[in-house]
Design a protein around this nucleic acid. Structure first.
Ligand SMILES: [Mn+2]
Ligand SMILES: [Mn+2]
Ligand SMILES: [Zn+2]
Ligand SMILES: [Zn+2]
Lengths: 117, 117
DNA sequence: GATGAGAATGAAAACCATTCTCGTATTCGC
DNA sequence: GCGAATACGAGAATGGTTTTCATTCTCATC
């Protein structure tokens, strides 16, 4: 149900998703959207991106470890695979006595369409 | 003035910084702390970290491009230098027609002290 | 030294994303 | 069917951040 709508091409906030659902006629409550997104996020079905201060964006993503390429102009999101940073980061962290548990990378740029425009 | 206090070892929220200032006797308003941090952040003097949803942490950092290693237990922050991701990311992004303008990396782990505890 | 324009300040109110509460509707086990 | 457990939605509450606005500072000029 939500999945069908989370099939947005790019990321979307809980409120945006709720808005689309309501506009489509589904009488779903905002609380349920938040609850469901939290659940899906906890289970790794959707990724939570925190690139804007003050709000969280969600996106239906592939399963493995990956990062995101975001167009700063139109908000388009592309998944990047093949992240081989773990070794490098672990070594770097070890120099400071840290053990690495996770890392995030976010790449901001401009997509072809927005460059042309 | 604020600089002297932003000399916190780790990152701190606007409200934490305000609390320290008031505790120290400076009669500064919360709004001014927010205004000043936004200004400093806009000018690149402090880094804004958004690793917690819902609040922004600030940190006085060195000038060049760098990333952060954060201890998830005690909030200690270490700066990482020597980032050579630009080439790799630009190539990867070009495959999707993107031009890269910036990237962020955040590494979460556990520091030596917290591992021992 | 007085004065006034404009910037800076702080207290309180407004804002807004998110979470909580709680009464109702639905589902499940039987 | 029937009661218990769960899911739901509407609205209130929360809490970080921003805005407002009356007051205070700054400082160049008279
Ligand atoms: Mn977004
Ligand atoms: Mn920094
Ligand atoms: Zn774009
Ligand atoms: Zn630690």
């Amino acid at each position: 149900m939500l999945n069908a709508l989370t099939a947005e091409p790019n990321d979307a906030t809980a409120q945006e998703i709720h808005g689309r659902l309501v506009a489509r006629g589904d009488a779903v409550g905002l609380a349920t959207v938040y609850r469901t997104l939290a659940l899906l996020s906890r289970h790794g079905v959707v990724d939570a991106l925190m690139h804007h201060a003050g709000e969280v964006c969600y996106r239906l993503c592939s399963e493995g470890h990956h990062h995101h390429l975001v167009c700063g102009a139109c908000h388009r999101v592309v998944e990047l695979g093949d992240c081989d940073l773990d070794g490098w980061l672990s070594g770097l962290a070890a120099e400071h006595g840290f053990t690495v548990s996770a890392h995030t990378v976010e790449v901001t740029g401009t997509c072809a369409d927005c460059l042309a425009a």
